[in-house]
């Protein structure tokens, strides 16, 4: 397992490198000079030049990339042009709401998705199956941010059950208060992502239920619940877990849009704000962080395979 982990982590380096180069090249192709944006239109040319030198922007691009990437590998993503603080600090200070939102969304997605998929797969063709599959179709067709806006109108503006905007950190108001601020956002993202899980669970269960060992389990007199949970679901889990890994990554992306709707000061909002301010180091840093989270989510999925299915070993 350790050797496997080391191999996978090493394999992630080229991916991160490719992402790093892509981001770096794209950002440097962008029109608009960040120094000019920072100093305003009235800045004197020599001021601009001095600032460019201070930030290392006068170096050739490959050199700039080399410096940036080698520092990034040890966790130093440079200094934010606008916030006047290290990019790593900026990202870390916004990480809490995003992570809480992402995990909440994955929880909602798994709870709705697996239940709906299980019922649909076991009662194929029934009204429940049709209802859940229509719900899944809705899930892939509704824009996340619009669902979020509707939840704000219903639970925030009309019923006044939950806060409609902002965030209170765990340190300030405790876990429950922090969670209350991301519940609606997590519901919006989670519902959308549950569609994928529901469809995958359904087809996976339908396939497994027709296999010989399930018939054998029935034949030897096991109860239906036991057959489904111990024999069918467990064997249907591999594709489901794969989709859950994907959902984690997608939720991370969905969180970006939904954070704007709820004015949650997370990593997604940091990205959008930085795009507006042309704060290149932050944009680079956030995208690199998201790519890394993607790679780690996939790694986690692969490791879960071995837990679910003892036949899979990573020696």
């Amino acid at each position: 397992m350790t050797a496997f982990l080391a191999r996978r982590l090493l394999a992630a380096v080229p991916v991160v490198l490719v992402v790093g180069v892509t981001v770096f090249v794209l950002i440097n192709l962008a029109p608009g000079d960040p120094v000019q944006v920072m100093l305003g239109p009235d800045a004197r040319p020599e001021q601009v030049e001095r600032m460019r030198q201070n930030l290392g922007l006068d170096q050739p691009l490959p050199v700039q990339f080399g410096i940036w990437f080698s520092r990034a590998l040890v966790g130093d993503l440079g200094e934010s042009i606008f916030l006047r603080q290290p990019v790593t600090t900026a990202i870390l200070s916004r990480l809490e709401p995003t992570l809480l939102l992402t995990f909440g969304a994955v929880f909602v997605a798994v709870a709705i998705g697996v239940t709906a998929g299980l019922v649909s797969g076991l009662k194929r063709g029934s009204w429940a199956d049709q209802f859940f599959m229509f719900l899944a179709l809705l899930g892939v067709s509704i824009p996340e941010f619009w669902l979020a806006l509707n939840l704000v109108i219903l639970f925030g503006v009309e019923l006044r059950w939950l806060p409609v905007a902002g965030y209170v950190t765990i340190a300030e108001g405790g876990l429950w208060e922090a969670f209350r601020h991301v519940i609606l956002a997590a519901l919006a993202v989670g519902f959308i992502q549950s569609a994928l899980i529901a469809r995958m669970t359904r087809s996976s269960i339908i396939e497994v239920m027709s296999l010989d060992y399930v018939r054998t389990a029935h034949a030897k007199g096991l109860g239906r619940a036991k057959v489904i949970l111990k024999h069918a679901l467990r064997n249907a889990l591999i594709p489901i877990v794969t989709v859950i890994g994907l959902v984690f990554a997608l939720s991370l992306g969905g969180a970006i849009v939904v954070e704007i709707v709820f004015s949650i000061p997370g990593v997604g909002r940091l990205l959008i704000e930085s795009v507006g301010r042309r704060d290149y180091p932050v944009i680079q840093g956030v995208v690199l962080y998201i790519a890394l989270a993607y790679v780690l989510a996939n790694l986690l999925v692969d490791m879960t395979y071995a837990v679910i299915d003892p036949r899979i070993r990573y020696d």
Partner: peptide, 9 residues
């Protein structure tokens, strides 16, 4: 490479 980060990002 292009698919290794979320579409929206």
């Amino acid at each position: 490479g292009f698919m290794s980060f979320p579409n929206i990002v």
